[in-house]
Design a binder for these strands. Structure first.
Length: 337
DNA sequence: TTAGGGTTAG
């Protein structure tokens, strides 16, 4: 921890502890805790608060609690980061807080949303003295995940300063609740307001396109992404691109993107195999399935369902029987589980 | 210096 020209102080620790917290690097974080003790800064308000957040995020609730209880001097952040493990205890803590700010309220609303207590969350949302865009996003995401897009949209209309997060919550909500056309409309509206989409938004948009199955739209989205500075090699982006192109019958592009993927997983293979099968390339579907197995990936029930359906679709009776037998004897799947 | 919101798929 020592650097040339000085010893670490209370300013050194919080950002490194935060990195451990984000990555859930438990042993590294604990080592930093030890180091902070040796340097005599473990009692510092900021160092302590960072440690409490770290232990809480890594689910070491007991350690977090110990540090928290032992603090003589806490501020609103120390209170807010204190993860007590369950909602009832969190509510109790929230009621005990000497001061609260908008982040404290947001944290408790988030807890309620996670437990799908939307009524409770809404009550807090209505009660809070001031709301920011995070408060709105939390509620909108809650409604969206519960499939109540009408309430999500109603609240969205009231957001004073819309940022990429709140647009993303709305768009993914539509895509996930079977309203892909609304997702596309919302995306276009966002685009027209010069809010720059990021990977999260594009993945949701691609999911919507897959559901709509419109080739022109898919081509448009595809070129939109390639014109942007977005990293299409990010696993979730690449997977969504392959799946969207395969579903919409743009097999040439799907193949190209698939080939470029640094790490092909079972699901992306399946997207391709299914796309090939649906669009009349039964032979290629079978070849790809074989290639996948030879590459060492282990097919699961869904993968077998896809290849068996591909064989049936293409009239490959013998191949179908072959995979069915392999499924039962080599991979020990039964057809009744 | 420390805290809070959004991704996807066979």
């Amino acid at each position: 921890m020592k650097r040339e020209g000085g010893v670490p102080d209370s300013y050194t620790y919080p950002p490194i502890i935060k990195a451990c917290s984000t990555q859930c690097e438990v042993s590294l974080g604990s080592a930093l805790h030890g180091s902070a003790l040796r340097c005599g800064v473990e009692g510092d308000l900021f160092v302590r608060t960072s440690l409490i957040d770290f232990y809480g995020n890594c689910k070491h609730i007991f350690s977090a609690r110990e540090l928290f209880d032992d603090m003589s001097d806490r501020n609103v952040v120390s209170w807010t980061v204190m993860d007590v493990g369950d909602l009832e205890e969190a509510k109790r803590l929230f009621n005990e807080m000497p001061q609260r700010n908008v982040a404290s309220w947001n944290a408790i609303i988030r807890g309620l949303v996670k437990m799908v207590d939307l009524k409770g969350a809404r009550r807090m949302f209505d009660e809070m003295p001031e709301r920011n865009v995070v408060s709105y996003t939390t509620m909108i995401d809650g409604y969206a995940k519960a499939g109540d897009m009408a309430s999500a949209r109603f609240l969205f209309e009231q957001v004073p300063q819309r940022d990429i997060f709140v647009w993303s919550a709305l768009i993914s909500g539509y895509a996930q609740s079977g309203q892909p056309n609304e997702a596309v409309k919302a995306f276009l509206e966002m685009d027209s307001r010069d809010v720059k989409p990021d990977e999260f938004v594009m993945v949701s948009l691609m999911s919507a396109c897959s559901q709509i199955g419109n080739l022109e739209l898919t081509k448009w989205v595809d070129s939109y992404v390639s014109r942007s500075t977005m990293d299409t090699q990010q696993p979730h982006v690449a997977a969504a691109l392959v799946d969207m192109n395969a579903k919409c019958g743009n097999m040439e592009q799907a193949t190209k993107l698939f080939e470029e993927m640094p790490k092909k997983d079972l699901i992306s293979y399946c997207s391709m195999i299914q796309g090939l099968s649906y669009h009349g390339h039964g032979n290629k579907a079978v070849d790809l399935f074989n290639k996948m197995i030879n590459g060492g990936l282990v097919p699961d029930e869904v993968a077998f369902t896809i290849i068996l359906s591909a064989c049936s679709h293409a009239g490959f009776v013998e191949e179908g029987r072959h995979y069915f037998e392999r499924m039962r004897y080599e991979y020990s799947f039964t057809s009744f589980s």
